[in-house]
Design a binder for these strands. Sequence first.
DNA 1: ATGGCTACGATCCGTAGA
Length: 254
Amino acid sequence: MKLASWNVNSLKVRLPHLVDWLANAKPDVVCLQELKLEDSKFPRAEIEAAGYGAAHSGQKTYNGVAILANRALDDVATGIPGFADEQKRVIAATVSRVRVICVYCPNGQAVGSEKYDYKLRWFAALREYLTAELARHPELTVLGDFNVAPEDRDVHDPKAWEGQVHVSEPERAAWRALLALGLKDRFRLFEQPEKIYSWWDYRMMGFRRNAGLRIDHVLLSAPLAARCTASTVDKSPRKLERPSDHTPAICELA
DNA sequence: ATGGCTACGATCCGTAGA
């Protein structure tokens, strides 16, 4: 089973890229973030024509998440139970007995800002949610835009980013608190080339200079980590005209 | 040099992303 996560930065604008990518990469399950559209505007017909069903939770302008699958999506749930939030950032579904949780973690804007505090509160709530979900679903995966670069090797210029939002110690501690639940960062299950990133700034020719961050991740519970055969980032959609600033993170399970 | 793109929804600029 091939799983992927992609922050598309507007599903409306990126729909042609997504449809092409589905045909080429042939993933079984795809988690999308930053749909930036209401559920009534979700392009269900185009997604179905590509061979995928979808569960989605969207809103106007901001946020929005979806899970696409080429097979049944069961027990769909949205949001984090007990964490009241207008922002559509979480959706879960069961696919081939695997619990798939798609997350768009808050950006945090700047260390010390109100949005940064929200980010840390949000991660604490996510941790509680995943604790309960893991008890119910041993085969569990969390895919999404985490907006945290876990280590300095996930950052193109650690010196320039030191202490900034996405790499600050409290954010990295929140990330490690998820790993402490027994979840594995699928990317680090394998030897990887250096300087692999999943996001590049639109400005300053970030992609051309490979000035990026690895902030899009796939976490696997222990039974799934044992089945993981490959982990990659697909840079190809970032080379297209009008790309998303993120590229798909991919994980293959035997 | 604190900017630099891109998307959105409001108007032709402000908010947000990372």
